[in-house]
Amino acid sequence: MEDSKAENTSRRRFLKIASHTIGGTLAAGVIAPVVGLAIHPWMKETVYGTEDFITIGKVDEFPVGVPKKMAITSSKMDAWNIFDGLVMGSVWVIRREDNSLNVFSTNCPHLGCGINWGEDVKQFLCPCHEGIFDIDGKTISGPSPRDMYSYETKIENNTILVNYKKVI
């Protein structure tokens, strides 16, 4: 009688542990992925497209020696939300014969007005206070304390990339 009772208890214990183990394992297999999904935005990067270099076009879209104005558009992706074609600003792009590039901000280093290219005088002209810059962005005359802002560029697969930062 005593023996069978002891056996009964250990059997009961075994079944209890076994069923809790199996049940616990199965439950963990369901709970872990659900928790993993719930904390996903915490653990992983969800915003893409904030890289430094922004594509502005193919090299042959730019005539040699003539500044061309380009809008800088960024595209950002936040999870499933796509922000495409956000205009951040504009730049003047000058391509040279050896395919080297100069990229200048269109904002005047004086007080930030938009600089134009004067094709007849071959100079950059600021309409606000008559600032004048040459094709390399150097100040020729006017109140500007410095030369035009320029940006770092690189060419990859015939595509021009600009490390655009807002300067004004």
Binding site: P33, V34, G36, L37, H40, M43, K44, A79, W80, N81
Partner: peptide, 28 residues
Amino acid sequence: TAFYSPSSTSAWGSVYYLQHKTSFGWFV
């Protein structure tokens, strides 16, 4: 629900994101 966007423009995109970009989204 935390990954769903009930709008005509982003509903599909949000489900795609849940299914393919999140951890265990496909499983849940």
